[in-house]
């Protein structure tokens, strides 16, 4: 029944941006909106607070902290996350904030990379992204990232899993409609890392995307995989006009 109401014009849509994107918080109930709006009640701020401590803690054989080079994150990191994922000039690879932090650890701190979804990497990512809160997403398309954007778009429109659903089927064609006791959101990543009540913890955008793969019974790509990075880039471009909310609160 569900599939029958979908389809049609899926691949016709070329536009990479939504005309008037609405953040997931606009689809949330009053209790979740209140929890996100209150910086003390928002549990995600605990991860931000831990990230601030890590920012100022020396790591690796360099014995340097993030702050040793970048100083005050409130100014040096302001607006940075709004431009990610982006191409890392040295390697030519697409990186998100998690990837950027780990590259910085390896190159500049002589430290081991942090495991994806570890408490430390979530905390640092949340802290860095939080410095851009309120700033509009600013991912641009250029020759270097275009292949990634194209692949991300393909993934977004690709039907997959036992339920044979693409991102666009739920989060665009049925956004705002009810699915059981839930309102389907537009599927933007602007609040991540976010605190989800279901997780009882803060998690990354890749964790959230993997949950969607699981939801449609598709094989989940690995954390930090090219597939999820390309999709993250496409979603950031598609969400142009929204502002960074990290740390968001979601159901």
């Amino acid at each position: 029944m569900f599939a029958a109401t979908l389809g049609g014009g899926v691949f016709a849509a070329e536009a990479q941006r939504l005309p008037a994107p609405k953040s997931g918080i606009a689809y949330a109930g009053a209790d979740i909106r209140a929890m996100q709006a209150d910086d003390f009640a928002n549990p995600g701020m605990l991860w931000v607070a831990r990230g601030e401590k890590l920012w100022n803690t020396a790591a690796g054989r360099s014995n340097k902290s993030c702050a040793a080079c970048h100083r005050d994150a409130a100014s040096s990191m302001k607006g940075i996350a709004a431009g990610y994922p982006r191409i890392d000039v040295a390697s030519g690879k697409l990186v998100n904030i998690e990837g950027r932090i780990n590259r910085c650890r390896e190159r500049n701190q002589s430290a081991d990379p942090l495991q994806y979804e570890s408490e430390e990497l979530l905390a640092l990512t949340a802290y860095v992204a939080h410095q851009s809160r309120g700033m509009p997403l600013a991912v641009t398309a250029d020759a270097a990232n275009r292949p990634h954007l194209e692949r991300g778009r393909e993934i977004y429109y690709r039907r997959q899993g036992q339920m044979n659903l693409a991102c666009v089927n739920c989060h665009e064609q049925n956004a705002g409609r009810k699915l059981l006791a839930e309102t389907i959101s537009e599927g933007h990543g602007n609040a991540y890392p976010a605190y989800r009540l279901e997780w009882q913890a803060t998690g990354s955008l890749h964790r959230r995307l993997r949950a969607c793969y699981y939801g449609v019974r598709a094989v989940m790509p690995a954390y930090g995989s090219d597939e999820l990075l390309d999709l993250e880039l496409y979603l950031a471009r598609r969400a142009a006009g929204l502002t960074v909310e990290t740390p968001g609160v979601r159901r």
Binding site: L179, L180, A181, E182, I184, E198, W199, G203, R207, R208, L209, R210, A211, C212, Y213, Y214, G215, M220, R251
Partner: peptide, 10 residues
């Protein structure tokens, strides 16, 4: 108590 519509396995 309401629930999410989608299964969570992530």
């Amino acid at each position: 108590v309401t629930e999410l519509a989608c299964l969570e396995g992530g």
